[in-house]
Nucleic acid binder design. Structure first.
Lengths: 203, 203
DNA sequence: TCGCCGATTAACCATTTGGTTAAACCAAAA
DNA sequence: TTTTGGTTTAACCAAATGGTTAATCGGCGA
């Protein structure tokens, strides 16, 4: 096997990643990816047979990058409250660095669940450990009773929502890039406070 | 002026509304709207000159329906905690009845802010009254100090997020339609509790 | 130096897509 | 009954789009 130079392939791939996440599957044009990668449109099909296949490669890459990052948090042996703080911090950082990630994933999942679900499932999101930890703490009377689905929803909602509504903050709350990142930075401490307070045993 | 029968126009319009919100601007094909309205494709252009114009009509209709509904809540003379409960209830109901509404709006706003922002601004979201009410309550020492942007974000995040991530609940939490609506129903009381607890003065 | 072979391109293709046109339809006015 | 004018359609159009092909490029081993 010859030494394959992957420069072209990875140029195509990262261009595809950017454009797909920016504009969604339906809004993406193959020639735009080719342009951004600085190559001929035919080369796209030489490396990735079709738009669907290229898209699949992109979402595979995304899930294989971020899902393990999340699983690492959920499976860490850390006190619950610490784990909550860690989750919000890491998740916020990921979304700050990838402004379109959450909106992209949620929209593709909404518009065409089939295309995404299969690959997401292969990546294996593992919420069981946190759920177990939560139930143990409840059983031990360390935190108040709450359905884990609600608690996790609260945690994720509060963390993710600002990023998928970013334009809204920019257009209607007059936040520029800097104010917005200041805002999400503040939320890194605010969110754990709210979540912890909502499950802390009252004395 | 003759009596214009608006049946065709409104058939086109509601078909457009459904398909645009289901699939987004880029995912929508004019002939699908025509099919669903049961008419010829040329009629679309007879009533609404172009895809852009038809889309604009749809988002105008959406904003003119729901923004006033929200403004009615924010401007009501109601104690703050009541207002919070009312907001979550009404907003949840709107989203339950229009499963794709939030995802659609947020995605279009993300992908093409320009097209949406102008019309959204015309509809005049009026957050000033709640913000004022919040600041008054803080000044009076009735609630704890918190930036209004954070509080409103918390409220809206917790309410809206499950609806834009609905497929996720279905595919990964095994919720069917019934369980999901049960879930969002539970949140109608859960969310105000969390929000109120997060601003309630500690004794 | 030559031939091999993966990488790359220009040109091409069929289909889809948003949009137009000219004719037909049809109810009501004249 | 004829005319009028809004409504509706079949047929058509040009551009865009995802994809293919055949030829060319260029480095490397024989």
């Amino acid at each position: 096997m010859p030494d394959i130079d992957h420069n072209t392939e990875s140029a195509i791939f990262s261009a595809a990643k950017r454009i797909f996440t920016d504009r969604g599957f339906d809004g993406t044009r193959m020639h735009l990816i080719a342009d951004e990668a600085g190559i001929n449109k035919a080369l796209l099909h030489y490396y990735f047979r079709s738009k669907e296949k290229l898209f699949e490669a992109v979402i595979k890459d995304i899930t294989k990058t971020y899902i393990p990052a999340i699983n690492r948090i959920t499976t860490t042996a850390l006190p619950l409250f610490e784990k909550i703080r860690l989750f919000v911090n890491i998740f916020s950082d990921i979304l700050s660095r990838n402004p379109n990630l959450a909106g992209f994933v949620l929209n593709e999942l909404r518009i065409n669940p089939g295309r995404f679900t299969k690959i997401l499932k292969e990546a294996g999101i593992d919420l069981a450990p946190v759920k177990e930890q939560l139930e143990n703490e409840m059983a031990a009377g360390n935190i108040r009773a709450i359905k884990t689905n609600h608690l996790l929803t609260n945690l994720i909602s509060l963390t993710v929502f600002p990023f998928i509504a970013k334009s809204f903050y920019q257009e209607f709350a007059g936040m520029d890039e800097k104010l917005f990142s200041q805002f999400t930075e503040e939320r890194k401490t605010l969110i754990p406070e709210i979540i912890i307070q909502s499950i802390k045993v009252l004395k």
